[in-house]
């Protein structure tokens, strides 16, 4: 990066940053350290652990990873696998791919069709959680739900969405819910591509897929990485599936955020709940680093 003239001197910059920094320190950094410290204690809200919490070393972590129970339903390992599937299929494949498809479909087209489809996607993204939960409970209901209504109308058998294929249900749900963000991000990324890049391709007669693969995707690579980082983080931590399945049946949709809730807020076991929070942060960090290093490597080979 060439040396550029400083527009804001450091001190003024820090001054501008200060109000946000105060909030971040108070409401993010402090709680973070609380979680970090408590993860090494047996602190709880009720029971003896509330009266006399003490340090227990790595016990909470070791219990989470206890090989005997690790992969049993309702345990941390099983929940991690579920979360992994959930992130992979609903965020990385569902939201990102569908978002890209929608952005690409309406690329360089301004019309009421685009406005309508994008607005519908955004509505799915902005309506409140509890409302969405009502809507989807009715949508997926076995006996009366809209989706089964459509299926039987098409002569297909009904599907027991919430009990038979609960993972698929929350994956469909989260894709529906969150695609708008990726769509918006990719739309504006596409919008920032100089038209001349594509005109050359038009002249050489490249088809749409070739244009997407050879020109567009490389150009918006950084946006893709940013999108993947953000939606991965968000999906890892989203609690909304709880409103639809409650984590069930039999823990089959208990993603880590729901497990944390159960341990920290139903059992009031803060030590263990905090340990999960810490591990999740490390996993998120690992993901972010992998994405960023992929980006760097691609840049280096160009």
């Amino acid at each position: 990066m060439p040396e550029r003239r400083t527009i804001l001197p450091l001190r003024t910059g820090l001054l501008f940053l200060a109000p946000a920094a105060i909030f971040v320190v108070a409401f993010i950094v402090l709680p973070f350290f609380w979680v970090a410290v408590v993860s090494f204690t047996n602190r709880s809200l009720t029971g003896p652990g509330a009266l006399h919490p003490h340090f227990v070393g790595l016990t909470n972590y070791l219990q989470l990873f206890a090989p005997r129970t690790f992969l049993q339903p309702g345990q941390f390992g099983s929940s991690l696998l579920i979360t992994g599937q959930f992130v992979l299929f609903s965020a990385l494949i569902g939201q990102a791919v569908l978002g890209l498809v929608l952005a690409w479909l309406f690329y360089r087209r301004e019309s009421w069709v685009k406005q309508t489809v994008q607005t519908l996607a955004i509505v799915a993204w902005i309506i409140p959680d509890v409302v969405v939960a009502f809507a989807w409970s009715a949508f997926l209901d076995y006996g009366q739900g809209t989706l089964n209504h459509i299926l039987t109308g098409l002569g297909l058998p009904r599907v027991d969405w919430l009990l038979g294929v609960p993972m698929l249900s929350i994956i469909l749900f989260n894709t529906w819910r969150g695609t708008a963000f990726s769509m918006l991000l990719f739309s504006s990324a596409l919008g920032s591509i100089p038209p001349s890049h594509l005109e050359t391709a038009d002249v050489t007669g490249a088809n749409a897929w070739q244009k997407l693969r050879d020109i567009i995707l490389p150009l918006i690579r950084t946006h893709i990485v940013t999108d993947l980082i953000l939606i991965t983080l968000w999906t890892f931590n989203t609690f909304t599936p709880f409103l639809i399945t409650g984590g069930g049946p039999a823990f089959r949709t208990e993603v880590v955020s729901i497990l944390t809730y159960r341990i920290a807020f139903k059992y009031f076991n803060f030590g263990s709940g905090s340990a999960i929070g810490m591990i999740m942060m490390l996993i998120n960090l690992a993901f972010a680093l992998v994405y960023l290093s992929l980006l760097r490597r691609r840049e280096a080979t160009r």
């Binding site: 409401f27 402090l30 709680p31 973070f32 944390t260």
Partner: peptide, 23 residues
């Protein structure tokens, strides 16, 4: 920027509700 987004994602999760309540 990245670090904060990362932190915020865990803090807005259920694990940190208690420190926030205490704060």
């Amino acid at each position: 920027s990245y670090g904060l987004v990362l932190f915020s994602s865990i803090v807005t999760g259920t694990a940190a509700m208690v420190p926030l309540f205490l704060l």
